[in-house]
Design a protein around this nucleic acid. Structure first.
Length: 412
RNA sequence: GAUAAUGCCGCGUAC
């Protein structure tokens, strides 16, 4: 009904539902689909939808919208738009959810202009209701594509005219983006504005600002903000503590980071995977690998499931502290335990190998990465180019650079 | 009764 532990459970339920007579309703099948998507199994969502189509099961605009969303998260907005055809064939019209999903997909695919065009069409023509979620989606898309000032302009416009007024999500989105753009003071300014406009900040607002202040070492203001939170009866959650722990850890202040963990537990918040990852990274930065592995053991003992990021942090720690062989051991154990490395894991290992001059091994890992279906990122290319150059393979690096230029790959 | 917007951790170069 709500969530599945595993994909298998979802498919088992699907089979059971198929055998049941009378047949389950559209709503039940849509709920199943939604459950799969909630696990972030977007590819499986598409497959499930196709099965449902082939079996002639009932589908309505809810289901199609869900599948569109899957395509968007798979970075296939084009397929999302193709779903419009299916929608019409089924006799439905796209609604505001459909369009929000597509706008979101366009932004995620970095098609900012197309997203804005579609948005303007909705606003001008009476295609569908233009609600606050659509505005919120556009503001988020603008922010996350590096156009925070445009997002702010839109917010200002909404304050002045139009039926949709700025809400807390929009303020939070822009405040977060300002902080990430290193404009923390502008973020704080917007915070006072939202208060004036009668929109009290929530924990997400504070988290963004606390993170911004921490990352610039503005600890006095962090303290002040935490007191403001308390006075506003907004209480820190695990993410807040993780941000504070990370702030200390990045400055190498592990004693204070551990104290913060203690405080967090006393306040009744349980540490999660990110909490442990953050602590591990802090110790790795200080070269204290035995402390880092101690944290990993604590995490395992507490029943917290390490993520691939947990291991990447450790691998990075080993590599940066001249312990590549330990990294290789751990890396091998990962694949034998069936934990899939992602592109960052590979990047860390490739760089580690280049740095100790093991170029052939590094290149081998690149093939392995391809074999596992991971595409190299911009960072991968930089690491390889840099690695080749530093090891005297300048002409090879040039060759690679040419290839990239021919393929139209930019390093920015 | 089912679908859409906001917060935390890992990798590079240069500065």
């Amino acid at each position: 009904k709500s969530g599945f532990g595993q994909l298998k459970d979802a498919y088992n339920l699907f089979d059971k539902m198929l055998r049941c007579r009378p047949l389950f309703s559209v709503v039940n099948f849509t709920q199943l689909l939604s459950g799969v998507v909630r696990m972030k199994e977007y590819g499986s969502g598409v497959i499930l939808y196709r099965k449902m189509c082939m079996l002639g099961l009932p589908i309505n605009v809810y289901g199609v919208n869900i599948v569109m969303n899957c395509f968007c998260y798979l970075n296939r907005v084009d397929m999302g738009f193709a779903m419009l055809g299916c929608l019409f064939k089924l006799g439905y019209k796209p609604d505001e959810v459909t369009f929000t999903t597509l706008i979101n997909g366009l932004f995620k695919g970095n098609r900012i202009k197309d997203a804005m065009e579609l948005f303007l069409k909705l606003v001008i023509g009476k295609v569908c209701e233009v609600n606050e979620i659509i505005y919120g989606t556009v503001i988020d898309g603008l922010c996350k594509s590096g156009n925070t000032s445009k997002a702010l302009e839109l917010l200002r416009l909404m304050e002045k005219k139009g039926s949709v007024k700025p809400n807390i999500v929009m303020y939070n989105t822009i405040i977060d983006s300002l902080c990430k753009d290193r404009k923390v003071s502008d973020g704080l300014q917007l915070l006072s504005e939202m208060v004036v406009n009668g929109i009290p900040p929530d924990i997400l607002t504070y988290n963004s600002l606390v993170r911004g202040l921490c990352s610039f070492g503005r600890w006095e203001e962090v303290k002040q903000l935490m007191m403001d939170m308390r006075n506003a009866s907004v209480y820190p959650v695990v993410v807040t503590f993780n941000i504070l722990i990370d702030g200390f850890a990045k400055e190498g202040r592990m004693k204070e980071a551990e104290d913060m963990l203690q405080i967090m537990v006393e306040k009744g918040e349980s540490p999660n995977t990110v909490t442990y990852n953050t602590l591990m990274d802090g110790y790795c930065l200080r070269g204290e690998m035995e402390e880092a592995t101690r944290v990993l053991r604590t995490m395992l003992a507490s029943g917290c499931e390490p993520s691939i990021q947990s291991y990447s942090i450790l691998l990075n720690g080993y590599c940066k502290n001249r312990k590549v062989d330990d990294a290789i051991d751990l890396f091998k154990r990962l694949s034998s335990e069936g934990l899939a490395s992602d592109v960052v894991t590979f990047n860390i290992m490739i760089q580690g190998l280049f740095e100790v001059g093991r170029c052939a091994d590094a290149m081998k890992l690149i093939s392995e990465m391809h074999a596992q279906g991971e595409s190299p990122s911009i960072t991968t290319r930089c690491i390889v180019l840099n690695g080749l150059c530093k090891n005297g393979f300048v002409s090879e690096a040039q060759l690679l650079l040419c290839e990239m230029e021919n393929k139209g790959i930019s390093l920015h």
